[in-house]
Design a protein around this nucleic acid. Structure first.
Lengths: 146, 146
DNA sequence: TTGACATCGTTGCAAGTGCAACAAATAGTC
DNA sequence: GACTATTTGTTGCACTTGCAACGATGTCAA
């Protein structure tokens, strides 16, 4: 019986390590706001994108922040229901939707963005010696030909 | 009206980048086998763990490969239903379950493990200049005090 | 032994997910 | 203009997920 040697270490398998690390970072971020504001990751991404380029369509979100379009659609609906976002049809192209922050949404971002910046600063400090290499590695993982 | 400056770039936010990169790596791996074998990430983790230390409990999987215990439980049930795994109660402690690879499961791993090793080798090559730094950074992200 | 407590794996439930199908709107071609 | 093809956002569906609750089993002290 010729069986594969089974000495494969999941702990050294990059897809695994990346997933675990990413989950930990997201949890670290969520911990800093989730109790206060009930925002999911998908909702957070939409909010950020709408915040700095208002009148955004679902399609744009889908393309720019790596969200399935149905996921983007439903997250946007939740945000609208919660009063953070306003949806209206685009007059130039009535297939499109314009997402805009409401006043309440703007207030939310006024409190959320500093938290995100602080967290990013904390990570930058923690990872200081490796930041450049990490940047390059991430670039390859996100864009490279795997 | 004093509004937060909204110049926050999601594309530079590490939790976001890590998540996207991790998803891409997992997709890259899945692409190399998913058509052939219908294995999910959770199932893959369990298989690897059972493969190199047989007679594993759900609790052990939960602790060692970062899976929710209900997720581990259900993934293990699926693997059992598919004939890759065998479940039996531990006689020393009848709360525990012993998961073991079936012959079919061993054959699956004989084909899956080389794929994983190849993929890891490809990633190592692609990331060669940054591997050490990436290792250190991942260590911090997974264990550090965020 | 008995009773209180802890641990393990499973399951009910509500919510979220991915995919394909869909209607509405637009673009392109003749 | 009329016809076809494409694009956009939503939704139906089956499946997955996370959490809490549960029964079964084990532990420990009195």
């Amino acid at each position: 019986m010729v069986t594969e040697t089974t000495d494969f270490e999941l702990a050294r398998f990059l897809p695994y390590r990346m997933t675990v690390a990413a989950e930990r970072l997201s949890a670290g971020m969520a911990k800093r706001y989730s109790d206060e504001f009930g925002i999911s990751v998908a909702e957070w991404r939409i909010l950020v994108h709408v915040a700095d380029s208002d009148a955004v369509s679902i399609r744009e979100i889908h393309q720019r922040v790596h969200l399935e379009k149905s996921k983007a659609s439903r997250a946007a609906s939740r945000l609208e229901a919660a009063g953070y976002l306003s949806k209206q049809v685009n007059d130039q192209d009535r297939r499109l939707i314009s997402l805009t922050l409401t006043e309440k949404g703007r207030e939310l971002m006024d409190r959320l963005l500093p938290v995100a910046r602080d967290f990013q600063a904390r990570l930058d400090a923690l990872l200081a010696p490796y930041n450049d290499a990490l940047d390059s590695a991430l670039e390859i993982m996100m864009e490279g030909d795997l």
